[in-house]
Design a protein around this nucleic acid. Structure first.
Lengths: 195, 195
DNA sequence: CATTAACTTGACACCGTGTCAATTGACATG
DNA sequence: CATGTCAATTGACACGGTGTCAAGTTAATG
């Protein structure tokens, strides 16, 4: 459970990311991760107490790699509410495919594992704040449709942008990433802008 | 594996429904179902070869109880496209909370179990047909926004109405069923109607 | 009375997670 | 050089859940 970055710890995380990304759907077992990292299964437990902990660490790991914070925060600099809404959808929507594998694993554990649920909920809470900020920006511009309170609008935007929705459109229905982004931006405008 | 309705088969299905409905989130084990049905665990396997098969049978069972077909088909009688859209959202949206428990169980098995995935996909396909019919009705009325092809609009409506979205709004965000239905109807209008 | 079908009990195999103990090998420090 | 320590290894094992198998019980039916 070394808290620092050790050589093997990184090997493990790297292997975990790779497996989650490639083996879409199929289970990713501790054994698989170990083999792929070139170490023994037991050595995993020297670094991560449980599978859940490993998965959570993996999300942090990729977030660092992707500089997620930075990219998501960028939308905050947009001038108008509409631009901000667009920028947030663009940023978050581009983030999804890069974390989809890991998110899926975490999501699957959510129901059975306390720690995984917590990690996931924190993430969703962060995302919701981004939505809230975008909606508030609309509100300040007086461009938010009077049909919605900011809270309601936030809930809806947050739901629209869920990873599961991305999954339905881009995986199940085969939409391209470009089509997804364009459609979601346009949908959000239709939904939230005062006409 | 008796294909007919036997006494105990129904007891099992009833127990299964009850457990899935009440024990939200917690696992529902074969043992639990057996105990709750008042029979031995092994007797379950006399009626259903696998857990997946039992769950699938359970969905059919509740569908029969709820007369889902009938209720969902009702929207087809609406006159205008808009009414039809509303009616479908009303029907499907009211159906969700009643099958939420079972759906969750099936959804969770989707990734690991072939049969469960198939059962789920069939269901989603049916639902998509309902969406398609509503969108086509709009199209025929020339009230579908030119921004969308019927296919795109169908995909989006289908996504909007996903059980996971209902879950996010009604479970996670605590929306009432009434609020959910109203908001989804209004959202769909904003999204799909030509302005 | 004998047969048959539905159930029961109890044991067991398989898998995946997590634990434990004993061992090895590298490397640092006195 | 001896010692200790740290990371990793091997191998065994417990636990929980699904699914299988075999033998025995019970009740209905001819």
């Amino acid at each position: 459970m070394s808290s620092k970055n050790s050589e093997t710890r990184n090997k493990i995380l790297k292997a975990c990311v790779h497996l989650l990304e490639t083996s879409q759907g199929k289970e990713v077992r501790m054994t698989d991760i170990a083999r792929h990292a070139g170490i023994s299964r037991q050595a995993l437990y020297l670094h991560f107490a449980t599978r859940a902990e490993l998965l959570i660490a993996t999300t942090h790991y990729v977030d660092e790699l992707l500089e997620s914070e930075k990219r998501l925060a960028a939308s905050r600099t947009a001038e108008t509410g509409i631009q901000r809404l667009d920028a947030y959808i663009e940023a978050w929507g581009s983030y999804i495919p890069e974390v989809y594998g890991i998110a899926g694993a975490l999501l699957a554990m959510k129901d059975t594992d306390e720690a995984a649920a917590k990690a996931w909920n924190e993430r969703m809470e962060d995302m919701r704040e981004g939505c809230e900020a975008a909606i508030n920006a609309l509100q300040n511009d007086k461009t938010l449709s009077p049909a919605y309170s900011p809270d309601e609008a936030t809930d809806i935007l947050w739901t629209m942008l869920s990873i599961r929705n991305w999954e339905l459109l881009c995986i199940e229905r085969g939409w391209s990433q470009k089509k997804y982004l364009e459609n979601l931006k346009s949908l959000a405008r239709r939904a939230f802008l005062a006409s």
